[in-house]
Nucleic acid binder design. Structure first.
Length: 571
RNA sequence: CGGGGUAUAGCGCAGUCUGGUAGCGCACUUGCUUUGGGAGCAAGGUGUCGGGGGUUCGAAUCCCUCUACCCCGACCA
């Protein structure tokens, strides 16, 4: 592509709206422009990257035996009523009416449509297993779209749905998809990690998320470098520490004026926070409240808490008024002793003796408190988020934490949708069988942003070669003043294109500095600089985006050199 | 939806407190010079000051209202 023929509106300054680096660079590199909150236009350069990601995803899905389909973006409300999600999905579902006032939605996902297709078209177990996918625009009316492409409302997603006669077949395809995702993210040139994930509201048994590792990621991943265990923080189990020591002290009440936080308690009473306990009250399902007890140095994991049937969903903290109603004290002075509501205690908090807690009386704390003696043995559950250094749940080492961007998610759905929509086939024995389903998503447009989050420097984007919009930036210096150089540059441009290399030919009559800066900002992996000086010596300058120095290479060897470099980078 | 903030030229911003008819940098246009890391000089164009209403002789500036966008919390690819 000749740069003079391309819309590439690079920006020297960062638009004020951008917060995260991928958003800033996508705007500055002239790849996207915002139309409205969470809605972006893909400009030519950005679209090339999106298409490359798409192509790799498509190739690998095809290789895995999945069949591509394309379903409507707009879906009739009836299907969503059938699955029960018209009511459940909430405000994120963009609802529409046509001219006859019939209800539709803009699909945020396609379980209903694909299951409808499956019940219409799949009749016999002989047609199973089957795996269908599409690459399509979704819309989720996010409460707060942000971070540019990272959390847009409209986004491009690859979603796949598999259908099976039984669970064994589902597990088999699930594993194939797991392996396929691993291939995809490897080919994309991204550092990633597959982690066990919460199945959440979608239901089903097993689930894995694929995260691109980046410090700016919104998700926290717990992993064990020794055993390979990796899980979303919401799923990573915190193991019980050892046996609880025997009580050595008697319980006593102390006056602690103005002490309302754990850190204040540790200072006031000179105890480590690991010997204190905090008690959080949340709304319960029965109209009362539920107490959640954690060690002072630990944090509540809200996802884990929300899994308790006694806890109202969504998880809601009791208001200060409610806290006073049930405990007679300020939220800062609540403790588990004498509480007249269900008490759930985290494993770690249940394993300490002689601890400090609120006295359920303003400005008083209790010391030397012991479970089973001063208050009933609590119901012990896993409530806290793991922290770095915790034992791995598989018992084979210690956990570390890192941050990631969720770019893929695979689920075993089971029969949730097939049962609701009555998607059945006739089995071998002639009886109807409700199909088992799996579903497998990849955030295609999010990958573009995630790749930038992971690969950038102060000069701009550094694309992995596999998804770079162009592989080579060809920059002739002062070409417009040298016919000889123009001819040589065009010759090399044609030659590179002839061997299938994607070249961005900067034929603009600009100063070299501008061309260099643009090529680096948009992140082209390889740069070839040509000049009259170089022609005299029969050389061009070559350097990769990550290099700080270029080197002269013979003009007649540059094509082979680039071919090899690109091939190595993509294999 | 709750909390915080912003809206002035294509982009980044000043001007708003204290009302007097809009400015800076970059970008853009033309010319000359320059030409290996975002050139210099000269000339030039650019605005419903987010919308509506009000106060005032006069509003970017004060008041009311609406809207859009951004940031912090719950959702998710």
């Amino acid at each position: 592509m000749r740069l003079s023929q391309m819309l590439l509106p690079t920006l020297r300054e960062t638009p004020a709206e951008a917060e995260v680096v991928s958003h800033k660079l996508l705007l500055r590199a002239g790849m996207i422009r915002k139309l409205a909150a969470g809605l972006y236009t893909w400009l030519p350069l950005g679209l090339r990257v999106l298409r490359k990601v798409e192509a790799i995803v498509r190739q690998e899905m095809d290789r895995a035996g999945a069949q591509e389909v394309l379903m409507p973006a707009i879906q009739p409300a009836e299907l969503w009523h059938e699955s029960g999600r018209w009511e459940k999905y909430g405000a994120e579902l963009l609802r529409l009416q046509d001219r006859h006032q019939r209800a539709f939605c803009f699909g945020p996902t396609h379980e209903e449509v694909i299951t409808d297709l499956a019940r219409m078209e799949l009749h016999s177990y002989r047609q199973l297993p089957a795996n269908f996918y599409q690459i399509q625009t979704k819309f989720r009316d996010e409460i707060r779209p942000r971070f540019g492409l990272m959390r847009a409302r409209e986004f491009l997603m690859k979603d796949a749905y598999s259908f099976h006669l039984n669970e064994a077949s589902l597990m088999e395809t699930y594993q194939v998809m797991y392996d396929t995702y691993t291939r995809i993210f490897t080919r994309l040139g991204l550092q990633f990690r597959a982690v066990r994930a919460d199945t959440g509201s979608i239901g089903g048994s097993a689930s894995h998320e694929f995260h691109v590792l980046a410090d700016s990621g919104e998700d926290v991943i717990a992993f064990c470098p020794d055993s390979g265990y990796a899980a979303n923080l919401d799923l990573a189990e915190s193991l019980a520490p050892g046996e609880r020591p025997a009580p050595t002290r008697n319980m006593g009440e102390v006056y602690t004026p103005g002490v309302r936080t754990i850190s204040a308690v540790t200072i006031c009473l000179l105890v480590p926070s690991s010997r204190t306990v905090k008690t959080l009250l949340v709304e319960g399902t029965d109209g009362g409240v539920v107490a959640l007890v954690l060690r002072g140095d630990h944090d509540l994991n809200e996802t884990k808490a929300a899994r308790l049937t006694e806890v109202a969903s969504p998880l809601t903290f009791a208001s200060p008024e409610r806290v006073r109603e049930f405990t007679g004290a300020d939220p800062g002075s609540v403790g588990p002793v004498g509480l007249q509501c269900p008490v759930f205690c985290d494993r770690a908090a249940a394993a300490i003796a002689d601890f400090v807690c609120g006295a359920n009386r303003d400005n008083f704390h209790l010391t030397g408190v012991n479970w089973g003696r001063d208050l009933p043995e609590p119901r012990v559950v896993d409530l806290r988020s793991v922290v770095a250094g915790d034992l791995s749940p598989d018992g084979k080492g210690k956990l570390a934490l890192c941050r990631g961007i969720e770019v893929g998610h695979i689920f075993q759905l089971g029969t949730k949708y097939s049962a609701a929509l009555k998607a059945e086939v006739v089995g071998e024995d002639g009886r109807p069988v409700t199909m088992e389903m799996g579903c497998y998503g990849i955030g295609v447009s999010r990958i573009v942003a995630a790749a930038i989050e992971q690969n950038n420097d102060e000069r701009g984007i550094i694309w992995p070669v596999a998804i770079a919009p162009f592989q080579v930036a060809l920059i002739p210096i002062n070409m417009h003043r040298s016919i000889r150089l123009t001819e040589a540059a065009v010759r090399l441009y044609d030659e590179l294109r002839g061997v299938g290399i994607e070249v961005l030919f900067d034929d603009r009559a600009l100063r070299p500095g501008v061309m260099f800066t643009d090529a680096e900002l948009v992140g082209i992996p390889y740069r070839v600089v040509m000049s009259d000086r170089g022609l005299d010596a029969g050389t061009v300058e070559y350097r990769t985006r990550r290099d700080t120095q270029s080197r002269d290479v013979p003009l007649d060897g540059i094509v082979a050199l680039l071919r090899e470099a690109i091939q190595n980078a993509c294999s």
